[in-house]
């Protein structure tokens, strides 16, 4: 089962952020959201970003996605400077699935390919196999209104993979779900990730979730957001629920907790 790309060893840098700052407005009313952020992520890694609410972690993700432009600094993803959306390299997921209500699950998954003008014979099988991957093969022809919150986010996961991006950016994708569903979705996401070996950047405010999923946890400070520290999570893969109770996990969680609290 462990056929992740060798790049997972951590050699190839796929995301590189240099001296990134973001300021909203100007003059006395200006708001500094991000301050001098530099980080790098290696290909195939699962990294999470945590920080106090309002620390700009969502803004950071939107900048990585090319949906918001930084005030200064640069972002490179897979060797390309990010100045706008790069749908073939980067896909994004939000707290809401934003599925189009008049399209069925499978039509929603293939929608990005349709925008690109891909023929039915190519996009439909790919969309169906991705729905199968997220366990929704029986719901391909259901409308979003007929799906539960967790199912909608699974459709969104399938849709985010349909263009075979190199990087998945996720902004609290499971925050609106109940605790049990959130844990289950986290495990399913890890399975999908093990299978595809894509790089994932996952923003969350749940410390347990952040540690449980990640290879590395980036901890941000309160506004203006800075990267305070990067923690390596040395728990073995595949992760299991029992690990959350063990001592190493608890220690790491405490350290991050105090770091955020004292910042």
């Amino acid at each position: 089962m462990n056929h992740r790309p060798t790049a997972r060893a951590g050699s190839v840098e796929i995301i590189k952020v240099e001296r990134l700052s973001k300021q909203y407005g100007s003059g006395a009313n200006s708001l500094r959201a991000l301050s001098d952020i530099s980080l790098s992520v290696s290909e195939g890694q699962f990294v999470t970003v945590v920080g106090p609410s309002g620390c700009g972690k969502s803004t950071l993700l939107l900048i990585l996605a090319g949906l918001v432009s930084p005030s200064s600094g640069d972002v490179w993803i897979d060797g390309a400077a990010v100045t706008g959306p790069l749908p073939e390299k980067i896909s994004v997921m939000f707290q809401e699935a934003w599925l189009l209500p008049w399209k069925t699950a499978v039509e929603n998954v293939e929608f990005p390919l349709m925008l690109r003008g891909a023929p039915f014979a190519i996009r439909r099988p790919r969309a169906l196999s991705l729905l199968q991957l997220v366990g929704l093969e029986g719901f391909a022809n259901r409308y979003p209104g007929e799906l539960s919150g967790g199912m909608k986010q699974r459709v969104a996961i399938a849709r985010s993979l349909v263009q075979e991006p190199r990087v998945l950016l996720m902004d609290e994708p499971f925050a609106a779900l109940d605790e049990q569903t959130r844990t289950r979705m986290g495990n399913e996401l890890l399975q999908v990730w093990e299978k595809f070996g894509r790089t994932v950047v996952f923003v969350t405010h749940g410390l347990t979730e952040a540690i449980y999923l990640a290879d590395f946890v980036f901890v941000m400070s309160a506004r203006p957001g800075r990267i305070l520290e990067r923690f390596h999570v040395e728990l073995p893969r595949p992760r299991t629920i029992e690990m959350i109770g063990n001592e190493a996990f608890g220690r790491l969680r405490n350290r991050i907790w105090h770091l955020i609290g004292g910042a």
Partner: peptide
Amino acid sequence: DHGFATMARAMGA
């Protein structure tokens, strides 16, 4: 909701 437009933009629309 603006989320729809943001999502569509991210998908390359």
